[in-house]
Amino acid sequence: MTQPEPHLLLRAAPFLRRGLTTPGLMTEVILALVPVILAAVYFFGVSALLVLTATTLGAVATEWLLSPVRPRGVALRDGSAILTGLILGLCLPPGLALWMAFLGGVVAIGLGKLAFGGLGQNLFNPALVGRAFLQAAFPTALTTWVPEGTITEVLSVRSGTFAAPFMQSSVDAVSTATPLGVMKFENVATPVADLLLGNSAGSLGETCGVVIIVCGVFMAWRRLFDWRIPVAILASVAAFSAVVWVFDPQASPSPAFMLGSGGLLFGAVYMATDPVTSPIAPRGVWIFGIGVGALVVLIRLWGGLPEGVMYAILLMNAATPLIDRISQPRGFGRGRAAA
């Protein structure tokens, strides 16, 4: 007896599927991070790998230990803890002591994610929570920048990496200033070409602009994030700083310098675009991006700190639920009142 071929398939919506799952998305973003990691290793040597390993271990261990999902370890399978650890590591200074990096990973997942209820529930970007904690706990270590090197120094470990837990490193660190620090305190702008190619000091993943832009374009093409977020951030930073620059070209940095320096590119591409902590509707996304850009310019030019991308994104993360509420699109066929 043969089964009759079904002529009619009955199925519920949705009919078009993209096949994009959370683990799939995380894997692709991690893949898109690989070039940035390679650039970090090129400029900062083995220390970069060690710091990244420490933050990722901290994040994964915390997720394994504290996640309420049972059986233990299932929560790790979506790869989000690894991603958080990597992103956190990439926004830390290269010579950071490994125990601090590990602690940062623990705080990022424990305080930034699990305290809010796990993946998808967090109000703030977990990696930035980890970094903000480290910045507040160890302000000196987080602003000690080792100079960038080249491929010849790839095997050298940067000073400070191997400090014993709870201790400062006993080695005197060779330190330098980031382009933003030089700009803020000595009013000397680093050439934009150096910023884009990575010939400047800074956090592990933020110095090489070109790599970040290429990865960003790849991720936008794969639709791993909303392209409007980085575009809105970069455009508003360029616009706001251009206004200041036109009026006072001597004392203020050029828009090109503002775009290429510090963590702006890395933050705009990898951190502000976190789908959990950014608005959903396009109108909200524009508000979010322009808000981040305005805050970055405000903090960098008039604040006490040389860099403000972290606080700008965290502040706008906090505003995201409100933005979502006011930017909800009008339902099809509904009147203006429902907007």
Partner: peptide, 9 residues
């Protein structure tokens, strides 16, 4: 000991 790194926060 004296090499302790204080958690300023």
């Amino acid at each position: 000991g004296e090499n302790f790194e204080p958690w300023v926060i």
